[in-house]
Design a protein around this nucleic acid. Structure first.
Lengths: 200, 200
DNA sequence: AGACCGATGTTGACAGTGGACACATTCGGC
DNA sequence: GCCGAATGTGTCCACTGTCAACATCGGTCT
């Protein structure tokens, strides 16, 4: 056989890992299954990843990147301009796409945040569209529009993030799981109303 | 040996499961290890729990209960009375003890929310001090004090919950893990300031 | 060209897990 | 005292992560 060497196994393993994370969640990503789907021996992965965690970390990075991509898409789709209403619309769009991604890709979302790399490591190694950076950018838009005082910026960023993230996790794995989709969405609208209320 | 029958193995298994969850997190709770520590065969647990998930669910219930107990303690310690400042102090105390519990008992907190029972099941089977009910109670105190309009009650509840829960999970397992404790605490104070700001 | 070597992939083994089955032991009610 | 039900044991299987030894390929040096 000509394919003793796979070519770019590493990327291939990450890809199938992502697919497994999408369909089964982080717990469903096993080295053996990933290798199996890549059509390769169960131990081949060790030539490219130190251990299972290393693979999961890469899968998580991809998940984080997809989230970032969805966010830029949503922000750009939100009405352009520099006014206050535009800044607010962008914040709202950011929040909605964040939880939208969590519900559309629960397995990937869980994986992205469950095995994200330890930020205290030497190499932070951020993804290109970095969700956190995008959020900061959005809040800075609010500051620029005069809706938020400079010294409240960091607190606002943290508040927006914790709100949508908590909302997503409580509904995804927590006690709010099982709430029907329409109720969920309505609650999100009112929640975002409150967040907007907070920054006035 | 007189102890072929353990006596109350079920409770004993849950207890050791809780200890394992405390020290190792949900992933460290294995049927075999729990049985081993209880001094019993690895299959004995199946007489009391349908599968591993059933045990984990019970452990999660205990975790949820401990969180609830910590919350009542904190609320009662907060200055008594019925005024507006008391209501605010209680809300703040509730939030602080929520994340305080998460950092003091990370394994238990993770377990409590990772494998909490599906609320859509026929038997919700709430814990006695139910954290959610306590939060609702606290927010109702704000309503009674005239700080929050009646029709914003549910949104406020959700906002408070998502905020502290998101804060806890982002710092526990998410990208904010690794933030030093003092920075973390300072950020929480400012975050709670913003939440208070939101409800005026 | 031909030998060589590092990178890559394979096979085999081991310990640990959750789970299913048949079997053993003990307790409570008659 | 006896019998059935509850409870615990032993054995087995499939699966996983990880390690060690071996096989194969591509490129480099002579």
């Amino acid at each position: 056989m000509s394919t003793y060497h796979h070519g770019n196994l590493r990327a291939s393993l990450i890809d199938t890992g992502v697919e497994l994370a999408r369909s089964e969640g982080p717990g469903g990503v096993s080295l053996r299954e990933v290798a199996r789907r890549a059509g390769v021996s169960h131990n081949a992965a060790y030539r490219h990843f130190a251990d299972k965690d290393a693979l999961l970390t890469e899968v998580a990075r991809v998940g984080m990147q997809r989230l970032g991509e969805a966010m830029v898409e949503a922000v750009e789709a939100a009405r352009p301009g520099a006014g206050a209403t535009t800044a607010l619309a962008r914040l709202r769009a950011t929040g909605k796409v964040y939880v939208g991604f969590a519900f559309a890709e629960p397995g990937l979302f869980r994986t992205a945040f469950a095995s994200c790399p330890d930020p205290t490591d030497t190499s932070p190694a951020l993804t290109d569209p970095d969700p956190f950076a995008l959020l900061v950018e959005t809040v800075d838009g609010l500051v620029a529009a005069g809706l938020v005082e400079e010294d409240r910026r960091d607190a606002m960023v943290l508040m927006c993030w914790t709100t949508v993230h908590g909302y997503a996790t409580l509904h995804l794995d927590g006690p709010l799981r099982g709430v029907p989709g329409d109720e969920r969405d309505a609650a999100l609208e009112r929640l975002l109303d409150e967040v907007e209320h907070a920054l006035t």
